[in-house]
């Protein structure tokens, strides 16, 4: 091979390596677009809303006067709706996942259920709103209540709960099941005493991820016709006198954080925009807190498990 040829090959390699670097730079830049937008969003929200955030804002009802308005009914509503969503979605989702992983035979019914779970995860959230409007609000006569909203969001996050629960059940090695059977456990005893406790970390992570999605959902709750101006709190679920628990809050009208924020965003007065930004900060903090809890749980449970 002559020296000239070698030179040419070296040049060619150098030129190609330049392209490599150029692409690496473009790649970094394109990821930066997303991250810079995220930063811009948070900075914009904070610069607009942080001055408005105060104890008074958290403990006041909405009002027609922007400087007196607050998010008390919104965050209480969100908490109660999330509580109901969790109560409805956890048992249903976990039970469905157990059936699909431990019981289902390979037949058309199991296939049908699986296809449905995947499809439901792709249905736009506003369609769940229409389902809730037709089914919960009118057919079952629940009206525009916490009950209707909680059940709607539970259906919405059901696929998330099922998929994550299935993954964590599948991660349990079969020797555990065989050991339980060998000691005379029935199938359900095996599931209740072994499969469920060992997969609890994954289940909790999935539930929290689902709830953090539900907490920001606006469209389905608007669709069921939730009122946006609520200046009272639902009846308290815990009472001082016997029987200490009351269920009348379930049928109470309500508002939630994203609805309250949407209400203020669409108002023409600029003072209300400031309120919207402040509500947005609280909403993002709620989602962030839930997501970090999910990451922490995943980390902790993964560390403790040694098969």
């Amino acid at each position: 091979m002559s020296g000239d040829n070698l030179q040419e090959i070296r040049k060619l390699i150098a030129r190609k390596n330049v392209w490599d670097r150029i692409f690496a730079a473009i790649g970094l830049l394109s990821m930066l677009v997303g991250i810079v937008t995220l930063l811009a969003l948070i900075i914009d929200l904070c610069s607009d809303g942080l001055p408005r955030l105060s104890w008074q804002f958290l403990t006041s009802f909405p009002s027609y006067k922007p400087e007196q308005a607050g998010i008390l009914s919104a965050w209480v509503g969100t908490t109660l709706v999330m509580l109901l969503t969790a109560i409805a979605a956890i048992p249903l989702g976990v039970a469905a996942a157990i059936y699909l992983e431990e019981y289902a035979q390979k037949n058309w019914i199991a296939d049908l259920i699986e296809i449905n779970v995947t499809n439901l995860a792709g249905v736009p959230s506003i369609i769940y709103g229409l389902l809730a409007l037709g089914l919960f609000v009118y057919k079952l006569n629940l009206g525009e209540s916490i009950m209707a909203a909680g059940l709607t969001l539970a259906l919405l996050i059901l696929p998330i709960v099922i998929v994550t629960t299935r993954e964590s059940i599948r991660a349990i090695p079969n020797i555990i099941r065989e050991a339980a059977y060998a000691l005379g456990a029935s199938k359900w005893q095996m599931i209740w005493d072994h499969v469920l406790p060992y997969s609890i970390g994954g289940i909790m992570t999935g539930v929290i991820v689902g709830l953090s999605r539900a907490i920001g959902e606006t469209a389905p709750i608007i669709t069921i016709g939730a009122l946006t101006f609520i200046a009272f709190l639902p009846d308290s679920p815990i009472k001082n006198e016997f029987p200490y628990i009351s269920f009348s809050w379930l049928m109470s009208p309500f508002t939630v954080m994203p609805i309250q924020m949407f209400n203020w965003v669409s108002s023409p007065e600029p003072e209300f925009q400031v309120n919207a930004a402040a509500a947005g900060i609280v909403l993002i903090l709620m989602t962030l807190a839930m997501n970090s809890l999910a990451i922490y749980l995943r980390y902790r449970f993964r560390k403790n498990i040694k098969w």
């Binding site: 995220l38 811009a40 969003l41 953090s212 920001g216 959902e217 994203p258 924020m261 919207a276 909403l283």
Partner: peptide, 10 residues
Amino acid sequence: GIPTVVYGYF
């Protein structure tokens, strides 16, 4: 993970 209503505001 950011709620879509916040994106709308943005």
